[in-house]
Computed example of a mutant assay.
Amino acid sequence: MSGISLYVCFNQVNYLAAWRQRLLERPRDLSLLLVEPSRVRPDASKPWPRGIAHLRGPSGPWTMAVLVLLALLGLIERIYIPHRREAGRGLGFVLSRCRHIHLLDDGLDQYRGQPRALITGQFPLGTPLYLFSDALPFRAPWCARFACRELGGFPLPAGDPGGEALLASRQRPASLVVDAPGLDWLPPLEADLPPPRLVLAHPAAGKRSWPAAPTPPSSSAATSPARSRPNPDWLVLHFPGPLLIGESFLLVIALVHRPVDWPLLVALPPAVDPQLRAMVECLCAQRPASRLLRAVPP
């Protein structure tokens, strides 16, 4: 048996990139999966492809102590990680002792002229970089520094009981808001975004920008059991009414996979990466029902 492969996933995109990598390459090693529980949604339709064994757990002092011990013993051969920005001393030590480092897709960074989370100089030229391929023509030039390995299209949800139940209920929203940076720079949208509005909060609290108070459907969705909560990915693809979305990876899913005649409103922060803005402008221009809103200072 070869050494251990450690997967460190800070968000849902990282996790699904790791899931797709193991599905495509089918390694038979022992895999350890470390996730950030508040930002990774379990999906029963996408079970972790098992090698000889599989462990999964949240990050914490005891978890890191175990990983440091495994690294000291030379048992961690490969690590799959999106970047080193959130790597503390323990994870930094594991990285220093690991034989092979692989990078995972982190969402929008591959479409930014300058990646926000990944510091490219921290990794050697030719480091493997696993990327989803939904908007391949818009991939940033910096990615060529790495050995890009294509994961194909983002794994879209086939179904979602929570979302289906919501859209079939009396509480069906008239418009959908995906909270993300850029929504705090919006002009008034009463005509374009009729109530009741379902507001989906960003999993990272620091990126929540929607200035209005959540509507009752949003509150009920947030407090319902996890298995019945609407999956944001599924709603973006299946909600036919007006959809407002900010700077989020869900924006790529909406621009590429949502029906072109369904209304889509896009809000980007004024300081958004120029290459990312150019991509959004180009994709919006190809969709007759999509519109990039002009930012207005709050």
Rank of each mutant, 00 (worst) to 15 (best):
S2P: 15
L6C: 01
V8H: 10
Q12G: 08
A17G: 08
L24P: 04
L24I: 10
L30M: 07
L34W: 13
V35E: 12
V35H: 13
E36I: 01
P37F: 02
P37C: 04
A44F: 11
K46Y: 09
R50H: 07
P61E: 04
M64D: 12
V68T: 05
V68Y: 01
L72S: 11
L73S: 04
G74M: 01
E77N: 09
R78C: 10
I81V: 15
P82S: 07
R84V: 06
R85A: 06
R85N: 01
R89K: 14
V94A: 02
S96P: 05
R97I: 00
H100L: 13
L104P: 11
L104V: 05
D105G: 13
D105Y: 14
L108A: 08
Q114D: 03
P115F: 05
P115W: 03
R116P: 00
R116S: 10
A117H: 15
L118P: 09
I119K: 15
G121K: 14
F123E: 01
F123W: 12
G126F: 03
T127H: 05
P128D: 04
L129F: 15
Y130P: 00
S133I: 00
L136F: 03
P137V: 06
R139Y: 00
A140S: 14
A144M: 05
F146Y: 14
A147R: 15
C148K: 09
G153D: 08
P155L: 05
P157E: 04
G159P: 07
A165T: 11
L166M: 11
R170Y: 00
R170V: 00
R170H: 05
R172I: 00
P173A: 05
S175T: 09
V178Y: 06
A180E: 00
G182W: 04
P187D: 01
P188K: 13
D192C: 08
P196I: 03
R197V: 07
L200F: 09
W210L: 06
P211N: 09
P214M: 00
P214K: 10
P214W: 02
T215W: 14
T215P: 13
P217W: 04
S219D: 03
S220D: 09
A221D: 02
T223L: 07
S224V: 03
R227T: 12
S228K: 14
W234C: 07
W234N: 12
L235S: 03
L237I: 05
G246W: 08
L250Q: 10
A254V: 09
A254Q: 06
A254E: 03
V260Q: 15
V260H: 15
W262R: 13
P263C: 00
A267R: 12
L268D: 02
P270S: 06
V272A: 14
D273M: 13
L276A: 05
R287Y: 02
L293R: 13
L293T: 08
